[in-house]
Amino acid sequence: MKNIAVIGAGTMGNGIAHSFAQYGYKVQLIDISEKGLKKGMETIASNLDRMVSKEKITEEQKQETLDNITTFTSIAEGVENASVVVEAATENTELKLKIFRELDKACPEDTILASNTSSISITQIASVVSHPERVIGMHFMNPVPVMRLVEIIRGYNTSDKITKTIMELSKDLEKVPVEVNDYPGFVANRILMPMINEAIETLYNGVAGVYEIDTVMKLGMAHPMGPLQLADFIGLDVCHSILEVMYNGFKNPKYAPCPLLTNMVRAGKTGVKSGEGFYDYAESRKAEKISAQFNK
């Protein structure tokens, strides 16, 4: 159980790889491009440097963590010795099904296959593999090295043994695993996304501005981050995808993405990663705008 493969070197994937490697696991980080892997490893190194500067880890521990990670551009090669595979690709159903079909061919039948999906049905994902009882959801929170919660999602066929193993594995990372059942949005996003969507509707209807909405929720509801800023950090495209999954799953209009959110995603304004969402994240203005508003 000390060999973990992580598919996807983006925000969630590199965070998951970082967490496992920091706790002594050998990690095979897999991405379709060398560029993506390089960027992912740079992010991990930068986050480790921050931990060193805060004296949370030593320079030696940082190097040990980096040494525990090996990169691959081939799924078949990357998962060869893995006991657990954690898929952390883009939140797209067809892409995830494609990856799990490939994993079914490449992995021994006793390899545990986990998905970091934030909303897509684990039962649906498991339907494309020959042993669906080994498929489970392992939904980490962002930023992964910092956030302690892991939603453990049982598909319809997920076995008790696999669930117990993944619960214990999460605890080994000093995370707090919470077991939930397989329904659209699970628990975290079934509650969070309608709130974010309602905040966007509030802006769309002209009730208040971005800063005002976030300030009300921060100071009035004791949220550490306002819902619009949080949406920017999650990615507006990700929020939109999750809402669509829930809307299609429940056939309930309350989950329909706000037209403003849809238009922003179409315009490429997806939040922090694009440089602009509800806030402007351009480097030249980031300190002035974000720090002034949220670090008072």
Rank of each mutant, 00 (worst) to 15 (best):
N3G: 00
T11E: 01
M12P: 04
G13T: 06
N14Q: 15
A17H: 04
D31N: 13
L37E: 03
E42L: 07
T43C: 13
D49Q: 14
K56W: 02
Q63W: 06
N68A: 14
I69N: 01
F72N: 09
T73R: 01
S74C: 13
I75G: 04
E77L: 14
A88C: 15
A88H: 02
E94T: 11
L95T: 13
I99K: 04
F100E: 05
A106Y: 10
A106P: 03
C107M: 11
T111C: 15
S115D: 10
S119V: 00
I120N: 08
T123H: 09
Q124A: 13
S127F: 00
S127C: 08
V128W: 08
S130L: 01
H131D: 13
H139D: 05
V144L: 05
P145V: 05
R148S: 14
I153M: 09
G155V: 11
T163M: 06
T163A: 12
N181W: 04
Y183D: 08
N189P: 03
M195G: 07
L203E: 10
N205Y: 11
V210L: 06
M217E: 00
K218V: 05
M225A: 12
P227R: 04
L230Y: 00
F233T: 11
F233Y: 09
F233W: 03
C239V: 15
H240A: 03
E244R: 12
V245G: 00
M246R: 05
F250A: 11
P253V: 14
Y255M: 08
C258G: 08
A267L: 11
V272Q: 12
V272S: 07
G275R: 00
E276L: 11
D280P: 01
A287S: 13
S291K: 14
A292L: 03
K296H: 04
K296L: 13
